Amino acid sequence: KNALMQLNEIKPGLQYTLLSQTGPVHAPLFVMSVEVNGQVFEGSGPTKKKAKLHAAEKALR
């Protein structure tokens, strides 16, 4: 199970927000955030999926 699945089991129905998309078309950088218990966690990556995963990993720490 990855961090997204684990976080969804603990806190179902979380909303992930796209904060920014920067970089060239062939190498974009997405920044996504998720709010858990009033705290906002951000993650970035080359795809929205990876950015969401990194945000979930930070939220689980």
Rank of each mutant, 00 (worst) to 15 (best):
K1E: 11
K1N: 13
K1C: 13
K1D: 15
K1G: 12
K1F: 13
N2F: 04
N2P: 04
N2R: 04
N2I: 01
N2S: 15
N2G: 09
A3T: 15
A3R: 07
A3C: 06
L4G: 03
L4Q: 09
L4W: 11
L4P: 04
L4T: 09
L4C: 10
L4H: 06
M5G: 09
M5E: 15
M5P: 00
M5R: 15
M5N: 14
M5D: 15
Q6L: 14
Q6C: 12
Q6H: 08
Q6N: 07
Q6R: 15
Q6P: 00
Q6S: 13
L7N: 02
L7R: 02
L7E: 01
L7S: 03
L7W: 03
L7I: 07
L7Q: 01
N8D: 15
N8E: 11
N8M: 09
N8W: 12
N8Q: 15
N8C: 09
N8A: 15
E9N: 14
E9F: 09
E9Q: 10
E9T: 13
E9W: 05
E9R: 15
E9H: 13
E9C: 10
I10T: 07
I10K: 10
I10N: 05
I10C: 07
I10D: 05
I10M: 15
I10A: 08
K11W: 14
K11M: 11
K11Q: 15
K11I: 15
K11V: 13
P12T: 04
P12M: 04
P12A: 08
P12C: 04
G13D: 15
G13F: 04
G13K: 13
G13M: 06
G13A: 08
G13N: 08
L14V: 13
L14M: 06
L14N: 04
L14D: 01
L14Q: 06
L14S: 09
Q15M: 08
Q15V: 14
Q15S: 13
Q15A: 12
Q15G: 08
Q15N: 13
Q15F: 07
Y16A: 03
Y16R: 00
Y16F: 12
Y16W: 15
Y16H: 01
Y16E: 03
Y16D: 01
T17I: 11
T17D: 04
T17M: 11
T17V: 09
T17Q: 09
T17F: 07
T17Y: 07
T17P: 01
L18T: 07
L18N: 04
L18A: 05
L18P: 03
L18D: 02
L18E: 11
L19D: 07
L19Q: 14
L19S: 12
L19K: 14
L19Y: 03
L19C: 13
S20L: 08
S20K: 09
S20M: 09
Q21L: 08
Q21I: 10
Q21G: 06
Q21S: 10
Q21C: 10
Q21P: 05
Q21D: 05
T22C: 08
T22I: 07
T22N: 10
T22Q: 09
T22G: 09
T22V: 08
G23E: 04
G23P: 05
G23R: 04
G23L: 04
G23C: 05
G23F: 03
G23I: 00
G23H: 05
P24T: 14
P24R: 07
P24L: 08
P24N: 09
V25E: 13
V25I: 08
V25N: 15
V25A: 15
H26E: 15
H26S: 12
H26P: 06
H26A: 07
H26K: 10
H26R: 09
A27L: 06
A27S: 12
A27E: 13
A27W: 03
A27C: 12
A27I: 04
P28A: 06
P28Y: 02
P28I: 02
P28M: 05
P28W: 01
P28T: 09
P28D: 03
P28S: 05
L29R: 13
L29E: 13
L29V: 13
L29C: 12
L29H: 13
L29F: 10
L29S: 13
F30K: 04
F30G: 02
F30M: 05
F30P: 02
F30I: 07
F30L: 03
F30D: 04
V31M: 13
V31R: 14
V31E: 09
V31G: 06
V31F: 09
V31A: 06
M32T: 06
M32D: 01
M32Q: 05
M32E: 04
M32Y: 15
S33Q: 14
S33A: 14
S33D: 03
S33G: 14
S33F: 04
S33R: 14
V34K: 00
V34T: 07
V34E: 02
V34G: 01
V34R: 00
V34F: 02
V34A: 04
E35Y: 03
E35D: 11
E35K: 09
E35L: 07
E35C: 14
E35T: 09
E35I: 15
E35V: 10
E35A: 04
V36H: 06
V36R: 02
V36P: 01
V36L: 10
V36N: 03
V36T: 04
V36Q: 00
V36K: 00
N37F: 11
N37M: 09
N37Q: 08
N37S: 08
N37K: 06
N37A: 08
G38Y: 02
G38S: 05
G38E: 05
G38R: 04
G38W: 01
G38I: 01
Q39N: 05
Q39F: 06
Q39M: 12
Q39W: 09
Q39T: 13
Q39A: 09
Q39I: 15
Q39P: 02
V40C: 09
V40P: 05
V40F: 08
V40A: 12
F41P: 00
F41S: 06
F41Q: 01
F41D: 00
F41H: 07
F41I: 08
F41L: 06
F41E: 01
F41C: 05
E42K: 10
E42D: 07
E42S: 11
E42R: 07
E42T: 12
G43S: 02
G43P: 00
G43D: 01
G43E: 01
G43T: 03
S44P: 02
S44Y: 13
G45E: 00
G45N: 01
G45L: 01
G45M: 00
G45V: 00
G45C: 01
P46L: 08
P46N: 12
P46R: 13
P46C: 09
P46S: 12
P46V: 07
P46Y: 14
T47E: 03
T47M: 01
T47Y: 00
T47P: 00
T47L: 01
T47Q: 02
T47D: 07
K48T: 07
K48G: 03
K48A: 09
K48I: 15
K48H: 07
K48V: 11
K48L: 10
K48C: 08
K48P: 06
K49Q: 13
K49M: 14
K49A: 13
K49C: 11
K49L: 14
K49Y: 14
K50A: 14
K50I: 11
K50G: 08
K50H: 11
K50W: 07
K50E: 15
A51F: 01
A51P: 00
A51C: 01
A51H: 01
A51N: 02
A51S: 03
A51D: 02
A51V: 01
A51R: 00
K52F: 01
K52N: 02
K52R: 12
K52Q: 12
K52Y: 01
K52M: 13
L53S: 09
L53H: 14
L53M: 05
H54T: 08
H54D: 14
H54Y: 09
H54N: 13
A55L: 04
A55H: 00
A55Q: 00
A55G: 00
A55E: 00
A55F: 02
A55W: 00
A56E: 02
A56K: 03
A56G: 02
A56S: 04
A56I: 02
A56Q: 02
A56D: 00
E57R: 08
E57A: 08
E57N: 09
E57Y: 04
K58G: 09
K58W: 04
K58P: 02
A59L: 04
A59M: 03
A59G: 03
A59Q: 00
A59P: 00
A59Y: 04
L60P: 02
L60Q: 00
L60T: 02
L60F: 05
L60S: 02
L60E: 00
L60G: 01
R61C: 11
R61T: 11
R61N: 14
R61V: 15
R61H: 11
